Simulated assay, not measured.
Amino acid sequence: MRRIDAIGITLGVFLAGGLAYVALQLVGIDGQNAGIWSQVLLVAGLMGWLATYLFRAGGKKMTYHQQREEYEKAFLQKRLDELSPEELAKIQAEIESGN
């Protein structure tokens, strides 16, 4: 994520909180209760985001892990493609013999 993306998300969350406050006041809730409920919505949203983050990090579904896995597969495939048939047969024989 780029820095500008993080700034945009932060501004979006800030604006959403303000809009929730105004919307709650428009429905007839007084200013103090509207402030409390808009904060409750913000905290609930942040807790939901945190839960999804922890789930992705725990399951290694993060972009970094996926990119690293794809790189490792491509690297190993390239090394395999560079082997001569004799080297490939030698490695296969070593694997089959259990060494």
Rank of each mutant, 00 (worst) to 15 (best):
M1H: 11
I4Y: 14
D5H: 13
A6G: 08
A6L: 15
A6V: 11
I7G: 01
G8F: 11
G8R: 11
G8V: 07
I9D: 06
I9Q: 07
T10I: 05
L11H: 02
G12T: 14
G12H: 04
G12R: 03
G12Y: 07
V13M: 10
F14D: 06
A16T: 10
A16H: 02
G17T: 08
G17C: 11
G17Q: 13
G18P: 01
G18L: 13
L19S: 07
Y21P: 00
Y21S: 02
Y21C: 00
V22R: 05
V22G: 01
A23Y: 09
L24I: 03
L26V: 06
V27K: 04
V27H: 02
G28M: 08
G28H: 03
G28Y: 06
I29G: 00
D30S: 10
D30L: 03
G31A: 11
G31N: 05
G31F: 10
A34R: 01
A34F: 04
A34D: 03
A34V: 08
G35R: 04
G35H: 01
W37K: 02
S38N: 01
S38T: 09
Q39V: 12
Q39N: 13
Q39T: 14
V40G: 09
V40E: 07
L41N: 00
L41C: 04
L42H: 06
V43I: 15
V43F: 14
A44W: 07
L46M: 14
M47C: 12
G48A: 15
G48C: 07
L50F: 15
A51Q: 03
A51H: 09
A51W: 12
T52K: 05
T52A: 10
Y53K: 03
F55G: 04
R56F: 12
A57R: 08
A57V: 14
K60W: 06
K61M: 15
K61P: 00
K61G: 12
M62K: 03
Y64N: 03
Y64L: 10
H65F: 10
Q66A: 11
Q66H: 07
Q66Y: 02
Q67C: 02
Q67M: 13
Q67R: 13
E69K: 08
E69C: 00
E70F: 06
E70I: 02
E70W: 07
Y71I: 04
Y71C: 01
K73S: 01
K73H: 08
A74Y: 07
F75Q: 10
L76D: 04
L76N: 10
L80H: 06
L80R: 13
D81V: 08
E82Q: 14
E82A: 15
E82N: 12
E82C: 01
L83Y: 05
L83S: 02
L83D: 06
S84W: 09
P85V: 05
P85M: 07
P85G: 05
E86D: 15
E86H: 05
E86A: 15
E87N: 11
A89W: 01
K90L: 13
I91T: 02
Q92R: 14
A93L: 13
A93C: 04
A93N: 12
E94F: 05
I95Q: 07
I95G: 01
E96Y: 03
E96A: 15
G98C: 07
N99E: 14
N99R: 12
